[in-house]
Nucleic acid binder design. Structure first.
Lengths: 195, 195
DNA sequence: TGCATTACATACTAATTAGTATTTAAAAGC
DNA sequence: GCTTTTAAATACTAATTAGTATGTAATGCA
């Protein structure tokens, strides 16, 4: 990676960390510069304004990072009931850079920014849409294989599961990570009953 | 209500509206003053700083407002499966001052402020704790009456339902209110299967 | 009625904000 | 080597931020 590309990546990575913990609006450009040692000239050379940087951060850091945890494990799923639960367990308990106190960076940004910035909203929708599609597809495969009842609506299940994730991330921020285990238990009951 | 108390209430009410739509940190005191016609002197007479106002807003506007929609309908519930679903339907589709685009004011504040302000977090936890207790209690009554299976864990169900609500509020911000109906359908399936 | 307290009004400050203008250094191309 | 483009450094600005200092009305009550 060239030195310039390195500077750009550094800005995005550090911005991600700060925004994940503090929120987008609460993270100032000066705050980012202070923690990256990058100068204002470099920042505004790489991004024409804060929002352009924020959008790049969503597309280049958050989207691929979350996609790998949320969607990839469901592609070529063998048993949707187990695989969806396992995907959720890993996302909630095992992904190292996510902390209960700070929730999920994608959920946080949807919450804070989707009413305020249409571009952010669309970029984040892309992730949740693809996640819902992957869940729906795996449920449909479960229906084909007989693991899931024929009367189950795959799209509804996908919506319900994604909402559950966003919600438990919210709850975890205030109540702590203990609720993750309770949620995972009850998610298992819900998923089992689809079969 | 005395004139002074009226000023105070006006500040809290207008602040609620602005913070609901813009977020807490994005709503400046000057912004509140401009929309209320209240002067800075009056604001700082009633509240020693912005956070004290925010806390009062949570306790005096958000808590009672949401409690009436979330908890009250479950006290003396006759049929938990129907009553929980009906409570959710009304909260999502009928409460007039709530909009899909802006989500739920309590969920928004948990998301934005619980990692940053311990007092806010505790005040908001009080609401979600009482909501979970009310759900748990109604499930337990359902178990007593035989409507709900004996092996159902009421606490787990309460956590799962509250997470679902927070999550669908988050999803609705980006995806619009159409997902509310899908969620309600699948919530009905989930609740039915408890019986 | 007088006086104290309550309630509010106005003008200010110091810090922080996003963003710009200008200059300078490093690379790349020829 | 020389020039052009890329990348970054520095110094600034105008607006906005939370909060203060100080003053003045309105109100309650002895």
């Amino acid at each position: 990676m060239s030195k310039a590309a390195n500077t750009r990546t550094m800005i995005l990575t550090k911005s991600f960390e700060l925004i994940y913990k503090q929120g987008y609006q609460a993270t100032s450009i000066d705050n980012i510069l202070a923690t990256t040692q990058v100068t204002k000239g470099a920042f505004f050379y790489h991004f024409k304004n804060k929002d352009e940087m924020g959008l790049a951060m969503i597309n280049e850091i958050i989207f691929p990072g979350m996609y790998a945890s949320l969607v990839t494990p469901l592609l070529n799923a063998k048993s949707p009931i187990n695989d969806i639960h396992e995907m959720m367990r890993i996302v909630l308990l095992k992904v190292p850079f996510l902390r209960a106190k700070y929730g999920c960076p994608a959920v946080n940004l949807i919450e804070e920014m989707s009413p305020l910035n249409e571009e952010f909203k669309q970029a984040l929708l892309k992730l949740t849409d693809q996640w819902q599609d992957a869940i729906k597809e795996s449920i449909n495969q479960g229906k084909a294989s007989g693991e899931v009842r024929a009367d189950v609506n795959a799209e509804y299940v996908a919506c319900f599961v994604v909402a559950g994730y966003s919600g438990i991330r919210n709850m975890g921020k205030a109540a702590g990570s203990a609720c993750y285990n309770i949620y995972l238990q009850e998610l298992k009951n819900y998923l089992k009953q689809l079969g």
